[in-house]
Amino acid sequence: MAEYNKSEAELEAVFQQKIDSEQKIEPKDWMPEAYRKNLIRQMSQHAHSEIIGMQPEGNWITRAPSLRRKTVLLSKVQDEGGHGLYLYSATETLGIERSELIAALQSGQAKYASIFNYPAQTWGDMGAIGWLVDGAAIVNQVSLQRTSYGPYSRGMIRICKEESFHQRQGYVIMMELAKGSPAQKQMAQDSLNRFYWPSLMMFGPHDSESAHSAKSMKWKIKRETNDDLRQKFIDQTVPQIAYLGLEHPDKDLVWNEEKGQHDSGEIDWEEFYAVINGNGHSNRQRIQHHVKAHEEGAWVRDAMSAYQQKKLQRKINAETAA
């Protein structure tokens, strides 16, 4: 209430002071317009990634090699749908509508994680995606549990808890293949080779190149930089590749004793920007499929609305009769 008497600068000072003292920002608090916009961009991109991310794995549900693997994969894809919902709902607390978010995704104005523009070609890719793609996402999401916006933070806590099985089921697929026949082991190696570098790209450009990083760190939307998170993922993945008995895709990777971490080869940034800008293998297909599913689902939404009308009319009729 006291906010009415304060100038924009004073409000911003109070806001920044909350952030600096590790207090969460809640939906009804005053916030700078740029903070709100930045959050809408990041959270909706995160939500879109969950939803588009259902496609490469959904592609393998009917072809999973056993009933058990089919139920596990189905369960994982269901989780992604649910996580998209949590994130869309949390984004809506910032005063934007679901339909606007979906329109921005379908027009290409909003982005989603580029990794999902790579096709899932083999069963081994189900292993590599769970292990590496979810693994990279979890590193990022664990950090985001401490983000400054309350609804986003609470969403991340719930999602991390539910997702803990995603990476493990992927690694189990990889272990099974790596211990299998030479052809199966080769399939595991091939999936690792194709998904390793794109997984590193999931953390975004280098800190020096990242357009949104500085502001996001000051506002504690992001808690760790792209490069720091990527380094964590690189280091944690090394023993996992070694255990599988597979070759590491990064030939320049060496342990740096002084830093206590691995030095690694450079990412192909040309590929990164090409895929982000719409020229990955599956960009058009992913959006076309989303639009198609949305349009083909129109009759369900119409039926629900018609049923609602019918129930309402019945209630009115009953009340008039009584």
């Binding site: 058990r68 693994g135 099985f165 990476q167 189990v172 023993p239 996992q240």
Partner: peptide, 19 residues
Amino acid sequence: DKPYRHATYYDIPKEVGAM
């Protein structure tokens, strides 16, 4: 009847670290 929704359903060797 869906134990596979829980992380504990999957045995991960200690050598590979927390997952």
